[in-house]
Every structure is written in structure tokens, then in C-alpha cells.
Design a protein around this nucleic acid. Sequence first.
DNA 1: GCGACAG
DNA 2: ATCTTGTCGC
Length: 222
Amino acid sequence: MSPMSSGSWQEAVAVQEELRPLVDLVGPGPAAPATVAGLDVAYEKSGELLAAAVTVLDARTLAVVDSAVSVGRPAFGYVPGLFAFRELPALLAALDRLTTLPALLVCDGHGLAHPRRFGLACHLGVVTGLPAIGVGKTPLVGEWAPPPIERGAWSPLRDGGDVVGRVLRTRAGVKPVFVSVGHRMSLANATAQVLALTPRYRLPETTRTADRLCRDALAGAV
DNA sequence: GCGACAG
DNA sequence: ATCTTGTCGC
């Protein structure tokens, strides 16, 4: 048993191997989702507490139309590659408290751009059945060439002979983000959705609003 | 064996 | 993720 876990890392890996075949890599996903959800988690400095937040935005206006939070304890120690086991329980609890059902999940972390092709975005997608994409700030696996400096430019993220995602420039001249498919979404559509969610900042409005919410919730919980 | 390693 | 001061720039 690893620290703060509900199981061993071997068991967690087994769960990933078991759920990986359930990822839908065929569905292109909604071209024009009505609503898009952002999910993020904030930790207390000691690491004892965490707050998970979900914000649902109107995909057209990017206004927040629904949101929910859940405060709890990390369900697993931080292990790169097993990240989902740490945040999933709290994220699912927050999703349950939502009044609306979002058409797309934008996760703070990777999807297929994962050692076993089953990152947080895949896990969340399979468990909820909703289309999901992963947007990471830093890479976990893969190699890539720097995309051209203009917004919208991208380069393939390759790992072990697979294209597992795209390194996307959401702002001209600013460090790119790592986009990968989670569930029921094509990589091209995932890219389009992320660009639609980044009219001004590097990170999607969904993650920005969720980030603010879980930080505030954590501050209010302590 | 030695690094790298989502948040 | 979180700990942290100043600093450059719009």
C-alpha cells in the first residue's frame, strides 16, 4: 500500500489496463457542444485536504452556468501515471452535485498522452460516459517539435510510435499546452474545442474558472 | 543502474 | 500541487 491509498499501485495499474479498452476512440465528439465543463483540484499546503471543482460554461458565451465543489482527502499518493486515483473520487463527487449535465469534460491533465494510454481524462470519460479531453500544462510522455509561434499552431505529440496528442499554441509566443483525447472525441475536435475555450489566456476558460472555484472552496473550508 | 515523472 | 519577491509589461 502506498501512502494515502485505497489500494496498491499494482492494483491501480490493473484497473487502468482493465478500463483502457472501454475508451471510445471512434466518436468524433460534439462539433458544437452547448455546455463545456472544466474540472480542477486544489490542495491544502500540508496536502491533507483537497477541493475539487467543476464549472459548467455556456460554450458560446463562456459564461459559467453551473458549478459544484467537493472537499475531501486525497484518495491516493501522488504517483505520475496514477494521478487519476488521487483526484477522481473528489471530482466525481463534485460532478454528482451538478444540476446540469455538461456535453463535454475538459480535464486538467492528460488523456491518451499517458504511459498506458489511460490518463485522468480517459478515466473520467469512461466512468461518466461523457466526451472528455485532457489539457496538460506540462508533458508526461512523448516527444514533439516546438509548434510555430502563432496561436492555433500545433505539432504532433508522439510516444512509442503513436500520436498521443498535440502540442498546441493557444496564445502567440506563449508556452504551448498538451492536448489529448480522453473519451468519445477526435484529436482534431479536441484541438478545436480547446481553441474555442482560449480566446484570451493560455489555459481554457473552463480550467481557469474551475481553478478559481476550488481555491476559494479550499480557503473557505480551512 | 540512472534519470524522468500529469497535479 | 504548494512554498515564495521582485520584476517586466500591458
